[in-house]
């Protein structure tokens, strides 16, 4: 339990919450909320509650923030994309597959079976890495909105 780390994480959480409330654009506010949830997860991890940290990340960052984005988009006037979306789609798919298969880069070349896959996916550090990649993926998607005026 290192004090400075706790302090840093707490201040990140506070700043994220403040930005979430005071941001001028709603989507940026949602991102601030995501930052707040992530900092909260890190605090839980530092307090020794691993499962809480993981649950926080799954439920809130992955679920609640996504729901916010969904609700917000339902009531927004649709944004006209200029140009085709194929490059964007292909790049997203590539990133997704990269995210899914990156853990296996550390696997032994014995052969890929379901058990080894599962072992790799859900073992102690593998799933954290996986989570981080999922987060990165969702971050990349949401960052699409950063580039637009909402």
């Amino acid at each position: 339990m290192s004090e400075p780390l706790l302090l840093v994480t707490s201040s990140i959480a506070a700043l994220g919450a403040l930005y979430a409330i005071n941001a001028r654009q709603l989507m940026r506010g949602v991102l601030g909320l995501a930052v707040f949830f992530i900092a909260l997860a890190m605090l839980f991890a530092q307090l020794g509650a691993w499962y809480l940290a993981v649950g926080q990340l799954f439920l809130f960052v992955g679920g609640v923030v996504t729901l916010f984005v969904l609700a917000f988009n339902f009531v927004r006037t649709p944004i006209q994309h200029s140009g085709s979306f194929w490059p964007w789609m292909v790049s997203m798919l590539a990133l997704l597959s990269l995210a899914l298969f990156l853990p296996f880069s550390f696997a032994t070349p014995q052969g890929i079976s379901l058990t080894t896959f599962a072992a790799e996916m859900f073992l102690q550090y593998g799933w954290i890495l996986n989570l981080a990649l999922l987060l990165l993926f969702s971050a990349i998607i949401t960052s699409q909105y950063l580039l637009e005026d909402t």
Binding site: F36, F37, L40, L43, F44, L52, F68
Partner: peptide, 29 residues
């Protein structure tokens, strides 16, 4: 502060989530 001073419904919901997060942090500690 966020609940009481904002007029947008979504922003208020965000503030509520912040409140609940703080409470879970308290309980965890």
């Amino acid at each position: 502060y966020g609940v009481l001073s904002k007029r947008d419904i979504l922003r208020i919901t965000i503030s509520v989530s912040v409140i609940l997060g703080s409470i879970t942090l308290l309980l965890a500690s």
